[in-house]
Amino acid sequence: MKPFEYYSPQSVAEACALLAQLGSGAKILAGGTDVLVELRKSADDVASSIIDITGISSLKGIEESSNTIVIKPLTTHTEILRSALVGTYAPLLKTAVAGIGSPQIRNRGTIGGNIMNAAACADTVPPLIALGARIRLQSSTGDRTVALSEFFTKPYITVAQRGELLVEIRFPKLPSDARSSFMKLGRRNALSISRLSVAAILTRDQSGVLTDARIVPGASLPTWHRVSEAENLLIGHKPTRELFVEAGKKVSDIMISFTGRRWSTEYKEPVIAVLVRRALEECH
């Protein structure tokens, strides 16, 4: 392991000042489940400074305010899993965090770390984008809010600037008539990285016609976003298996339009369609 400087700010302002001062060699430590592994690499680009933000108590917790749920970035996956607010107003997020890593990783890993690490398989991101989450980034010079769907530019790359710290994740409560789901396919039943995943939300009116549909595939597109082409196939119709199959096929086509045909396409092409169909059926 390369030696590194260690800082432990006690406030957001202090953390932002350190980020500004230390520049590109600084890395934020939240849960540490990614950063500590990275530190053991021998590569030249590993962090030279670690800013441990775990002491900043204002960055922890889950709150509600009227129609909004606010999750602070240091909230662990286990805390999200146990949150009644998340269980009621964002059940697909609860499903997603339940499948992350192992109990030990869920006890340490944070939602903020999952977002900022920006791995394509991050399990909290598809549900959060489906929920319409926005995140707040703070720096020593100010703060700004970004829609999570516009935050990622490439795997591991986001629009966050050097010096910016994630301080809040916020999304509207899911309406009580909405149904949601999260489907994950991994190679084994625990401690498994998503090979593919899908977050879905469906809302229907009293006659059963779909009034809202949101589909966000994970680990399949270069960046996460809702697949409106597939959603539009659903809205205004009564849900049927054939319709869900069609929506799955559309997501698969869209995926290939982004990625082209690659070594893994032969597998992902049929399977993402299946997962989308199942996610939609689960919302039924």
Binding site: N117, C121, P155, Y156, A219
Partner: peptide, 13 residues
């Protein structure tokens, strides 16, 4: 990361 699309995924690092 220029030419990169999602091939497989695991934790960074």
């Amino acid at each position: 990361i220029d030419a990169m699309v999602v091939d497989s995924c695991k934790i960074r690092g």
